[in-house]
Amino acid sequence: MRVKEKIIEKVLAACALVTVLTTLGIILILAVEAFVFFQDVSILEFLTSTQWTPLFTEKNYGILPLLSGTALTTLIAITVALPVGLTIAVYLNEYAHERVRKVLKPMLEILAVVPTVVYGFFALMIVTPFLKTFIPGLAGFNALSPGIVMGIMIIPFVSSLSEDALSSVPNSLRQASFGMGSTKFQTAFRVMVPAASSGIIVSAILAISRAIGETMIVAIAAGQQPRFTFDPTVPIETITAYIVQVSMGDVPYGSIAYKTIFAAGITLFIFTFILNNISYWIKTKYQEKYE
């Protein structure tokens, strides 16, 4: 009996250990492959060159064009998702009737379960042609359309996390504000949102991290052309889309093109890792403020 109990505990612990091994595996593999890559390519060139052409005969290995592409689509997505998501969160939490909320909330969640490849299709087939009617100079592949669609995808993510933050603010604060004669609007934006600010900041950081790592929307609708620019109307390429582009082709193991996807991967990983840890830190530091 005792032995059996011990064995079961060990087996369960082994399951939990898999998560640690996964993290170690990711870090180790990215580090090793990137190390091999940087024996062929100087770090200085990688960080400063504005050309990324590892698949051409004349090869350049500057990550900046991929970084600018990623930053651009992320910026557009956040510009859409943050104000909209926050507005929805405040509306559902402070204004909407309980019954309305119960209907609207699960419907919004549908936005989050649509596969990203489907969003890519939407960006390419609906949003880009639609935007072209307003912006005549818009290229068939561009950063604007996938950025906006990515923003739409992230809205429920922002709104539900912000809503959690808002609803964890004690009701007494709200009542006190009403008691002073404030309107709902004043209560929401001068009391509730500031009180829930740490949770809202966390939702924003996690949304940025999601947007940076998003792949299929940009791979389909942004054009796969690395370009060091912040012009949202021309084709660009993100870090993630580059990895997909290389993986779709036949790249022999050990070739320099094969190594570039790991160099791109570690760059991506570092950014998301930092953002995730900042958000976790904020969350644990400010979580129990009201308890």
Partner: peptide, 12 residues
Amino acid sequence: NLAGVPSIIYGL
């Protein structure tokens, strides 16, 4: 942290 790692990194 793992929940926030982009899916494409899992691919690598």
